[in-house]
Structure formats: C-alpha cells, structure tokens
Amino acid sequence: MEIPLLGRIRKMEPSLATLLLVIVGAVAVVGLVVAMTAPVGVLVGDTQWHYVSAFHGMAATVFLLGATIAVYLAWRLYIGEIRAFRDLKWLAAFSTVMSAATIGFGNWIYIAYRAPGGPRSYFLENLPEVHKIFFEFKEFIALFTLPMFAVSTFILWKYGDSLVKNREARATASVPILLGMFFLLLAYVLGAAITKLRGV
C-alpha cells in the first residue's frame, strides 16, 4: 500500500533554486557568525595559514553541500526516476570544480602542516599513528573525489538524458557520484578530526 506522504516525498526533487537557497542560507549563517565575532581575525586567526586553512575548510564544506544534492539526484537517476536531469549535470560539474578547489587549498595548507614545528612534527612526536595512518590516508583518499565527479560529469554532459533509458549507462553515470561522496566524507571527517587535534 502506497503511503501518500512517502509517495509525495519520492516524487519531489531539488532544483537549482533549492541549491541557490541552500547556498544563500549557508552564506547568511557564515555572515552572521562573522558579524558576531568581528573582527574576522578573532574568528579565523591572524596568520596567512589560518586564512588558507579557513578557505580549505570552506571549499570542502561548499563541496559537501553541492555533492549532497548531487548524490540524491544521482540516486534518482540510478533508479530511473529522475526529472531534474539538467540540475544533476550542473551539480556534478559544480562538485568537480569544488573538488579541484579543495585539493588546491589542501596542497597549500599542506606546506604549513609539514613545516618544522607544524602539526606533522607534533603528531610524529606525540601521536604518530594520527599522521602515519589517518592523515596519510586522508591526503590520498581526498584525491579520489576528483576523478569520481569528473567521470560522472563527463558522462552526464556527453550522453545527456539519452542515458536515462539505459540501466547500465545510468549506473555508470550515477555510481561514481556516490563513491565520490563516500571519499569526500572520509576525507572531510578525518580532516576535521586532525584539525581539532592540532591546527596549523
């Protein structure tokens, strides 16, 4: 028996308007926090590395926001019930760009992480397993997000909505997005944990 509410939720799909609203909301929350903790230096920190670190975390968070909606639409594509196909194409492309930006900022902040007296020295001295297992795994698994979202973006844009009719093509376009989200979550959680233990 079909439950009316579940049926309605199942048919609902986010749109670019939803994404825009989410981003405006996120920016508003960030703006509020920044205003409440002004000057910005108190919130972010007062060195160059604090700003690079903040941009790395912010890029990862925006990536996470876009990828979350992309994952939902990818699942809709996988089960063959997608309507907002155009939104999925744009969200996959957006996530690919944000993955590249996050990796770029990650490389930049890695300089501070490795610097003498930086978090790496601290971890190797006090908690070697944090660097040797969690950080090393995080730095590589984060790179896996880029090819996953890039492959899906390529397939979605190259074949367009013609792939909706083909079950294998739907899986090939949507599963890498799900895997990319899995890698993103791993890197995000490990990155946040490492930053909490010892920031730059």
């Binding site: 090819p147 492959v151 397939i155 190259k158």
Partner: peptide, 16 residues
C-alpha cells in the same frame, strides 16, 4: 566514450 573515461580515471589512481 564512457569506458575510456572510467579506465583513464582508474589508471591515474593506480599510478598514484
């Protein structure tokens, strides 16, 4: 070509 895109992505990660 979806297969070429998939294989190239995998080759890159294996090279890494």
């Amino acid at each position: 070509m979806a297969v070429a895109a998939l294989l190239a992505a995998w080759l890159g990660l294996m090279a890494l």
